[in-house]
Nucleic acid binder design. Structure first.
Lengths: 362, 362
DNA sequence: TTGTACGCGTTATCAC
DNA sequence: GTGATAACGCGTACAA
């Protein structure tokens, strides 16, 4: 705290948050570490053998009804929960699913993780989240740590690029889920999206809204190029003229989007709409347009991609193409669950439908 | 996908992301599930007994140098990592630390979790994140699930209010960390912040910037009231006149902030600055001011609290009081580590210093 | 400094 | 449908 602002006395219990003033006084601190009940105790209380308790919990149909009910009652009374370590040790089945996010601050990724957790947790699985920070080194070290962690399955927001890591993951012999992209050879399962379709949808939407002369910008390479191909295909089909295109190297800031629009405009061709296959670029383009007294969407329509948070926070709101991230996570969770239950999804490689979140910029 | 926008053919391998075109062809899919090496195997290769390998890894100083080196070499070759379940079962020490966030989308909370993970992971602990969604029911069920999970420690962003849950947590007999608030009777350890000081700092800052007639708004009750008290104390000390105050019941949206400013203004007293002890209220207040043609900060200065993301995304940027969330998480992690190592922090209840993130609104 | 014997709590296997 | 037995892989306790 800057001292200029400190109150005359240091913060003490003057600053207390007594959350429930009516609550009973706190219990004495030093409690016996309260060993949780073991299966043996439940068995004794229910008058059966431990293995019968185990079965009553995991394969209830194999236990006679009266015994089962008695056992479940004792379980409820004692609050018994099987020790996950003992269970994992004996059965080789862990209840932990590891999830890796490239960026923990992305709302879309958070939604996907949440959706996956919603599906897995009721089935007794715990989701453990790690962050790879878009770093190969971090990704490699986290994948290495999976050997020690022994999760039941792994979920990635994104796909694994390094063949070395792909191989490590295969060797784990557990279900692996990749998401958000559409590689030719997924490690195992995939809930991806089609970048080509995203571009196709963008051009189609602009055509429908009556725009005829359009421009395109995207990150250089990979997905950006796929979006461009889809965009070009739909433009051709719909009779749109693509008057300018730009591939930006590694756009990181809004300023990159501003510069990109400036370059597109400087190419001379006139266009009344631009598809920025990346919301950050789109926001930058909108700012640049505003500074140039181009009204959005009247003088220039801007269409983004990614359903990023900022899309809804600027004025006018940015129309953007994206996927149902929560649904993506749920679907990934369901497929994982199927595999964890010993099954195999009929379609281990799936593509999420895209959608247009329409706001005012187009 | 809306069919109108679908490309003529369904997405196929036309849309592939071949991330490393130069990568070797993928290995055949069906690999043996590759059982990881056990300690016994390492022992055999190193010519020692299993227990010596165990010691070499956990208490290296107790093993003769030559044997230790040989063992570590074999460990590196085989990629041996101890089975965490067997270890936890035998030693009673889990390597999982459970972290609960009330809102997984909060940048501040995410930063805190990240800071904590940075400290814990190098020491071999894994952070498992759950979301309580500001729901007592969810909080209760997650705390119940802790009994089954048996983590080594628990971290909360926030404090636990229900005495029932507080008791459950005590009974776990493991280190518990609460954060972000300053309750009178923390369950165990605490890295909190002083709401009183936040208010004090706010009034001091406004006084320094030359404002003399000020207003205050906050969420009703608890922390909001503490911030009000600090604000009032500093205002009195600095000769500020607090011409209007408002406690808002459960503000959830920006619209609530707009309404709050409207009510403060309608009270008749003129003020040139307002401290909104909640960024959401502050943003609403700024929007309302703009609509009323009050220039911020010329006609009305707005000071927020919380260092929320939106503070930096609106125009003009909102000046807001907050804490170093990453540092908070790190500090919590360090204290947990100390306890996990068998020690006891000298100061188990700590207060994070506050800071002012100055932008243009004051 | 190193090794032996055993047990952590559960579930797979097989016998009844 | 139920139970006895053993084993999962490791680390504690103690002995050498």
């Amino acid at each position: 705290m800057s001292d200029r602002h400190a109150p005359s006395s240091a913060p003490t219990h003057d600053d207390v948050l007594r959350l429930r003033p009516d609550a009973p006084p706190p219990a004495p601190r030093a409690l016996p570490p309260a060993k949780p009940p073991r299966i043996e105790e439940v068995a004794r209380l229910a008058g059966v053998s431990p293995i019968t308790v185990s079965r009553a919990l995991r394969q209830p149909e194999k236990v006679a009804k009266d015994k089962r009910e008695r056992i479940l009652q004792v379980v409820a009374q004692t609050g018994y929960a099987s020790n996950p370590h003992a269970r994992a040790l004996r059965s080789g089945q862990s209840s932990v699913v590891a999830a890796f996010v490239s960026n923990i601050f992305s709302q879309q990724f958070a939604l996907a993780v949440q959706g996956c957790a919603e599906v897995l947790e009721p089935q007794g699985y715990q989701l453990m989240v790690g962050q790879t920070s878009y770093s190969y080194a971090k990704e490699t070290s986290m994948i290495a740590s999976l050997r020690a962690l022994r999760p039941a399955a792994v979920l990635f927001t994104g796909v694994i690029e390094l063949e070395e890591n792909r191989q490590s993951l295969r060797e784990l012999g557990i279900p692996i889920m990749e998401t958000w992209a559409y590689p030719r050879d997924p490690i195992d399962m995939l809930v991806g999206l089609s970048n080509y379709d995203a571009g196709f949808m963008a051009a189609s939407h602009l055509a429908e809204r009556g725009y005829r002369r359009v421009a395109f910008m995207a990150r250089h390479g990979g997905r950006g190029e796929l979006r461009r191909q889809g965009f070009a295909a739909a433009a051709a089909q719909r009779g749109l003229e693509v008057v300018a295109e730009l591939a930006v190297d590694n756009p990181q800031t809004i300023a990159d989007g501003r510069a990109a629009l400036a370059r597109l405009l400087s190419q001379g061709g006139k266009f009344d709409a631009v598809f920025c296959a990346n919301d950050l670029l789109a926001v930058g383009a909108m700012f640049e347009a505003r500074d140039r007294k181009l009204a959005v969407p009247r003088d220039l329509a801007v269409l983004g991609f990614g359903e990023t948070d900022i899309a809804g926070e600027i004025q006018p709101g940015l129309t953007t193409i994206g996927v149902d991230s929560l649904g993506l996570g749920r679907r990934a969770g369901e497929m994982l669950l199927q595999r964890l239950g010993g099954g195999m999804p009929a379609h281990p490689h799936q593509v999420m439908p895209l959608r247009i979140h329409a706001r005012a910029s187009v």
